[in-house]
Design a protein around this nucleic acid. Structure first.
Lengths: 217, 217, 217, 217
DNA sequence: CAATAAGCGAGACGGTACGTCGTGTCTTCTT
DNA sequence: AAGAAGACACGACGTACCGTCTCGCTTATTG
């Protein structure tokens, strides 16, 4: 999933051969060092998004400040690229597929509450949301909350179920995913781990709305 | 809903007489001027949360910078108090009550999409979420997204419906509110106004899970 | 040597009986506490003149800040009063009087160089000069360097000598005192203790000019 | 008379090649602009040493505040460099050389009293002495009152006279200069212009001590 | 192979805002 | 009325980053 960190939108060289430009080419090592440094500062050193500074990234990456400003518009841009380049990611537990959607989602939520509500994951959510909420319109154009914060696996499970005919007709798997995941994310952002009761109630209510009437949820 | 802007955790005078402290008492005028100034800068002048500075608040409020730092820990603290003190608030359209919950919520969502998705409302959502996502743990302890970003009217409508027995037994009105409102808020935060189709699908799915099976949603 | 620390020049009550003014009289205890505190901070705690603050004086004196501002114009005023009231003073070694002026002054200078060039005395000179150099015109009107920095004993010795006819006719004892003391003070201010050679040369040269031609200096 | 404004004690490159350091080199333009600005504020705008602020210097010099703090420890350091770099100096009237030292010095003192005792010169003396008296030990190490406040021309006149054999053997020209100049400076600092009588008496007394006995001073 | 470009680490630059400290004034209760 | 306490408007402090701008050096392509 290559991404142009390019300020100027670059517009890839259409000439098939990808004719190399004159002058010294961009250093891949520096690019990676920057993204890695940013990711580590947020992830390992657990600093907050606004305690993160471009200078600190540059210093940790052993890179000149200008090298960052040459390729990214600001720190939000760097963080987003770090996310996109998978140096920094939300890793939610996998969603099982036993054939029984309701049981699978409930079991997944159980695992979320028991194992995934770590300080690291919660602060990561905060960083991402902060990066998005503070980023410029331009930055947001490159990023969808739904693509980053959502559990792609959860969405995939709903899509599979839909193809099996296990969802009520007309129900959008994306919508179902959001209805479960987004309230969960906002709770993590605002109050940390949610109440188990609340979470189970959420899953039940949404699933009841998403499954066919015949299924005895 | 009075709130102690106090750094040191309020510490109410338990002694019944509430004996006045020595020295000049805190100026209520200054307190209000600060909150008002912060609110106006975000609300009227439409500046972003991180373009907001303590110095600018102080200058607009005609108050010494120290007076702000004496009573609030940082700008996020000021903004939160401004919200809590109702100088700054999200005002969503009212939820009608015709007796038919499904129709009411659908109509409310219609109004949201048509009238409420203004630049102002969306940027206000961003300010609030940024204030929470970037704030310290201490700040978050004083604020719940669920209390601020949520539409209290929507929640009230579900509570009324529950008391009338119009909700499926065991369904928590708070959960239902979140399942509709939170995905909407995240969309506003990330991509601005959501697709109408998506929004209607969300309402339908959640309501189907929340209403009694007998109701023909 | 009583001094009115009064801002308004006060103008003593002319009515012979010294009729007490209405209201609570000025607290002598506070006045002394302030001067003592200022003196100690400079003298004992060895802080520099501009590290000295009115707030620190007030706090050390257990006195309200206003009590200082009610009676003194600023910290320079306080320091000057502390000097005048003898809480803070330059104590130079005594000048012997053996009848032989030249021998006495040389011996005094010897003692100065050997015993008096302590860190405390030098920093005290600096405080005084700073207080004078930075003080307003009003402050300076109340203070003469010649009265404070000069060794009154040295001056007295020259005056005695003059009355005995031991000075060349027409020579002003004050001038002689200055010609020896002021270069010494400036050296202390700028470079700390002066070179002994330099000091002896100074004494010799000035004395030769001040004593009658007959005396074989 | 080049001076390193360097915080870290100059550290000249001993390596003959004087290999340039990495990074952008210090801007000479900024260095000069700062010293010039400080000098003008004291000299032209006639503000007092403690009304002088680093921010004002920076703003007048059109320089970032940090650029000042990068190279100087505080405002006293800046003022001292301004002095050393000759942007700010005491300019006393020239000392004539007619061959008759006594007449020359008396005539010079006459000119001093008549023409040089301007408000500007006196306040400049105050600035310089304040800068020294309040400065840290480090600052003082770089500056000698004797080098700055003294009239170099007066000293030169005495040195010339010494080489001609016009001074009494063993008399140090530096000492004579101080014995005349320092009392004058302290008077200017403390009370402004001195009495003419006092000044003439000073000159007579010191010269009598400095000239050979044969000369009929 | 030299010339020419452009990227690189380093670090100074003009700025803005920070959070703290001190000033001198004001306002409250206490003595 | 004066005193101790302490909040107030103001403004400078010295620091941290911002985003820009040279420097000398390195690494490519091109003539």
């Amino acid at each position: 999933m290559a991404v142009m960190g390019d300020k100027s939108g670059s517009g890839s060289c259409v000439a098939g051969v990808a004719r190399r430009k004159r002058g010294r080419p961009r250093s891949e090592a520096s690019r990676v060092a920057v993204l890695k440094a940013a990711a580590e500062l947020l992830d390992v050193d657990q600093i907050s998004f606004d305690a993160l500074t471009v200078e600190r990234i540059a210093s940790r990456a052993k890179v000149g400040k200008q090298t960052i400003y040459r390729w990214w518009p600001n720190k939000a841009g760097v963080v987003l690229d770090a996310i996109i380049d998978d140096h920094l990611s939300l890793t939610f537990p996998p969603v099982p597929d036993s054939g029984d959607l309701a049981a699978d989602v409930r079991s997944w939520m159980e695992t979320m509450l028991d194992e995934a509500m770590t300080e690291e994951l919660i602060s990561m959510v905060r960083h991402l949301v902060a990066a998005i909420a503070m980023g410029s319109a331009e930055v947001q154009a490159r990023l969808r909350v739904s693509e980053l914060c959502e559990n792609p696996q959860l969405r995939a499970r709903f899509l599979v179920e839909e193809s099996r005919g296990g969802l009520r007709p007309g129900v959008d798997p994306m919508v179902v995913t959001s209805a479960i995941m987004d309230p969960l994310l906002l709770r993590m952002l605002a109050i940390g781990a949610p109440e188990p009761e609340w979470a189970h109630d959420l899953v039940d209510t949404v699933l009841r709305g998403a499954l066919p009437a015949t299924s005895g949820v």
